[in-house]
């Protein structure tokens, strides 16, 4: 069959648990070969969306395809072509690394099993640890193993749910280098994350809060689309605290966020913001300058702008 341009193409996806709308008419298009970042606060519906994409959950509304297969009717096909890495380590802790991979290889009915498992172990630098029990691995190694396991059947799409949570920066960097190699070879990757540096490494992003898609596009497009002006204020720490207090509620200053020895003040009304910031900075003897808003500024702004729906009070997971 002809390869569709989009590896993921869904619209109107809605999922309710009891009365809580966890994902609310969510639409997403992920081009083939892209690394697509999926961002949003805890409990915003990222995991639920990913689970609907790979057939673990049935959407209440909406339609769409994954690799050209209908997510409602062809979840069996999708499962064969998709590698899904769960948020929590979900391989068997009482099996060794090699035994876990062999298990996965058998489940997918992979030909030349031993060879492929050995190759996977080699590629991930796990060969010497093959007999070690998975449960005794550190977070970073568990993550490598989990990735190896979901790559074993050579999927065309990877769904990674916060794969780097709790992993040290060095291991994260390696992990992302690996993802880019895979994407270069034609793999599509949808990866949810809370890390801004990771978000910036994606080809495209989607930001979701309270189950709704708030922004999508490349990092630049998302930043530009927010129409946000940001000022940085620098100077003495005590004076910064005073300035932060003074700026709360000042005209135009929608958001005041301390970044170490700087304050980021953002707002959508650029004129009012400039007036407020220069006034307060001058009064406190601080330096103020307009800067490009970062992704984080934009995401926090997007989240604050969206009121929390009353029905989505405390849903776990996300």
């Amino acid at each position: 069959m002809a390869e569709p341009d989009y590896a993921i193409e869904v619209e109107g996806l809605t999922k309710r648990f009891d009365d809580k709308v966890v994902v609310d008419h969510f639409g997403l298009r992920v081009r083939r070969g892209q690394i697509y970042g999926f961002l949003g606060p805890n409990g915003s519906g990222k995991t639920t969306t990913i689970r609907m994409l790979c057939g673990l959950l049935t959407p209440d509304e909406g339609r769409g395809t994954c690799l050209g297969f209908d997510i409602r009717r062809e979840s069996a096909r999708i499962k064969r072509e998709v590698g899904y890495m769960t948020q929590r380590f979900s391989l068997y802790e009482d099996l060794s690394i090699a035994e876990n991979l062999e298990f996965v290889a058998r489940i997918y009915g992979i030909a030349r099993r031993r060879e492929r498992v050995d190759a996977a172990l080699e590629r991930l630098g796990l060969a010497r640890r093959r007999r070690q029990l998975a449960g005794t691995l550190s977070g970073g190694w568990k993550q490598r193993l989990a990735l190896a396991a979901c790559l074993l059947h050579e999927p065309r799409l990877l769904l990674l749910d916060e794969p780097t949570a709790g992993v040290d920066p060095g291991a994260r960097r390696e992990f992302w280098a690996h993802l880019h190699e895979l994407a270069h070879e034609g793999m599509t990757v949808l990866v949810s994350t809370h890390y801004m540096d990771e978000a910036e490494r994606c080809h495209a992003l989607a930001y979701i809060a309270y189950g709704k898609l708030l922004a999508s596009g490349s990092a630049e497009e998302v930043v530009a689309g927010a129409h946000l002006a940001t000022w940085a204020i620098e100077g003495e720490v005590a004076a910064l605290a005073t300035a932060a207090a003074a700026l709360k509620g000042a005209p135009g200053a929608d958001m005041v966020v301390p970044f170490g020895s700087r304050l980021h003040v953002s707002g959508t009304d650029a004129g009012a913001l400039a007036a407020s910031v220069t006034r307060v900075a001058a009064a406190a003897g601080l330096r103020a300058a307009p800067i490009e808003p970062g992704l984080e500024d934009v995401f926090i702004h997007l989240m604050r702008r969206t009121p929390e729906p009353v029905t989505v009070a405390h849903q776990a997971g996300g």
Partner: peptide, 13 residues
């Protein structure tokens, strides 16, 4: 309980 169910369900088994 161990969370391995999710992985199992995501496979074609």
């Amino acid at each position: 309980e161990r969370g391995t169910m999710e992985n199992l369900l995501a496979t074609p088994v």
